[in-house]
Design a protein around this nucleic acid. Structure first.
Lengths: 215, 215
DNA sequence: GTCTATATGTTGATAGAC
DNA sequence: GTCTATCAACATATAGAC
């Protein structure tokens, strides 16, 4: 099965992009301006191709969006299948999912950012919203298990807790920049630390209450 | 100074909207589809007017956006001027700003939601982004003061803490619905409780560590 | 695989009657 | 204040040469 590169090498001209490389550029544009505000002309300019050449790679603008959203959704759901998300006490599973979700968000930053901004205007967007709802439901169940086990505070509504927890994780997409002041693991650790133990100082013995980072 | 209503009453025809009422409908449309994906035709349909009639009220689409963003920005900055944001220990001032920001977000939900989604494509959007950065700087200073006073944990980078804190507050805009499962004060209380003391159960004496709600 | 040229629809905005 | 009619610009997408 010939790749884009091989096919164009046969024609004696270099393919500037595989479809995957093109997707990286496209997603960056979508994030910079918003999907709706980004025209095929913008995408052509960003890739150095013409609109027609872009249409050679994909069926259209929405197909590009779908490819990008699929990538983010798959990566997030993979976290739920990790062994540490499925065995052990509910709090520990919850902490693992939160930490790994933060790591995935940072590792696939542009793709997850796009996913988090979806509004539901097209079929692809509505599909992505439905998958996000699935993910949230899986998480709410984890929070409830942790409450039932007595490890998460029961004085605040569990649905509210779930939303605030993942609101904090997801908000990372709005400011994190690779090569910036914070590394991926620093962010994931900070999210877990603040989410589970809060901002307040605990005094001299406080640090002992913290869950071990990267066990 | 005649209002829209008075002016049209003089002509013997009812004005369907004052500019402010029109803005409520417009902002709802902007939030449902995104600013860029919402056409003037969409706005006309939602208001029951024609495009031309909408243009009678405002200079254009971006003017509508600017009016809406100004309303959200003004409400948020007003929180910083409240007495409880300016006097007392830094942690208490911080907790007050967080709680009030959550309350303002819920009270002006559509307007603040719009503000939080701004991308920077137009002058109005870039102005709003700049005001948001100002707000964030004011908050980062508060967090730093609270750390210096020893009341907020110093083991996590203060800039990181500020971002996670307001990420959690702002994420409320993505799911809160008036008349839904949670009331405005319940949300604000939950935000403050989780942010300052974390998710983890504190055991029998735990509740005593919580800051009093609505002192 | 990439190009130029073009078809076809939608957009934000305006002119002018009532 | 609201309407109908219209415009120039720009959108997504396609045709067909190289």
């Amino acid at each position: 099965m010939p790749t884009d590169r091989q096919a164009s090498a046969r024609l004696g001209r270099p393919a500037r992009f595989t479809t995957d490389e093109l997707l990286d550029v496209v997603v960056a544009e979508f994030n910079a301006r918003g999907y709706d505000a980004t025209s095929m002309e913008d995408l052509a300019r960003a890739t150095g191709l013409t609109k027609s050449a872009v249409y050679h790679h994909v069926a259209g603008k929405e197909a590009l969006l779908r490819l990008a959203l699929t990538r983010a959704v798959d990566a997030l759901f993979a976290v739920l299948d990790e062994p540490a998300s499925r065995t052990g006490p509910a709090v520990d599973r919850l902490a693992h999912v939160v930490r790994r979700a933060a790591e995935v968000l940072v590792a696939l930053l542009p793709y997850v950012t796009l996913l988090l901004r979806v509004r539901g205007n097209t079929d692809s967007e509505r599909w992505a919203l439905e998958r996000r709802r699935d993910f949230d439901r899986r998480l709410a169940a984890l929070v409830q298990d942790a409450i039932d086990a007595g490890d998460v505070r029961a004085d605040v509504d569990p649905r509210l807790v779930t939303r605030l927890l993942f609101g904090m994780v997801n908000s990372t997409a709005e400011w994190y920049r690779p090569g910036g002041a914070h590394g991926p693991y620093e962010v994931a650790d900070a999210v877990v630390a603040v989410a589970f133990d809060g901002l307040r100082s605990r005094g001299p013995g406080g640090a002992a209450q913290l869950a071990p980072l990267h066990p």
